[in-house]
Amino acid sequence: MINFIRFIIRYHFFFLFLLFEVVCFYMLVSYNHHHRETFLNSSNKIAASILTVSGSFTEYFSLKRSNEELARENAYLRAMLPENLRETAAQPLNENERDSVNYIYYPAGVVHNSVNKLQNFITINRGARDGIEPEMGVISARGVVGVVRHVSKNYSTVLSLLNTQVRVSAKLRDSDFFGSIAWDGNSVAHAILSDIPAHASISIGEAVVTSGYSAIFPEGVLLGTIDDFELLPGEGFYRIRVKLSVDFRRLTHVEVIEKITSEERLELEKLTLDD
């Protein structure tokens, strides 16, 4: 026993090093694999308020660009005003049908953003007080941005689409074949769409949009366009390189989406799963 203690003391530097590494790796693994609330992330108050300062500078420098994007979105929304739509004879089936899909959009500013890691996060300046909850979708005027991960009172962190942990259900806009899109960690401007079957007809430049099968994003939000594709030998699925429509390096304003009926739907789906 004495010898053992002497051994520990003699090599205390090494054992202390091992102890610290074990603590680090425990945190690394538990933080990444469980959605556990921890105050040690950038939605905590001190870190977020410091990042807000730097975010406000970045925002100033990209004012021109965000103005253009807002103007483009204005034009798009104006085009959707009732008087601009052609009258159709078809009436909605009933009131409930029309109300069944209902989204609320919360505008938010980007406080901090990273693109050069494998796990990229965005911090936004809206939190629980503004009605943001984990697992809500985040989009910008140009397309899908990510999914809310942690929420504090005034801030939230968002798993960027440029995060290898994120997977979004997607489909080809023209042919409705669906698959899932995820980032492979290589290029800031590209992600990989997989699970599109080999018999689907696809072409370069075709738009890829959200499928609406997950309760997070509405159907038809733009993800990007097909840049390149190859048929995986022996698997029967395409591996499609999608050029993302959002430029993650210049992100200043986003919108967080709340889907009103999603809870009801999740409950129903849970029932089916439990059977």
Partner: peptide, 12 residues
């Protein structure tokens, strides 16, 4: 790590 949301990575 706190600023980068990578708890444990830089620390290790």
């Amino acid at each position: 790590d706190m600023f980068l949301n990578t708890i444990g990575m830089h620390a290790s």
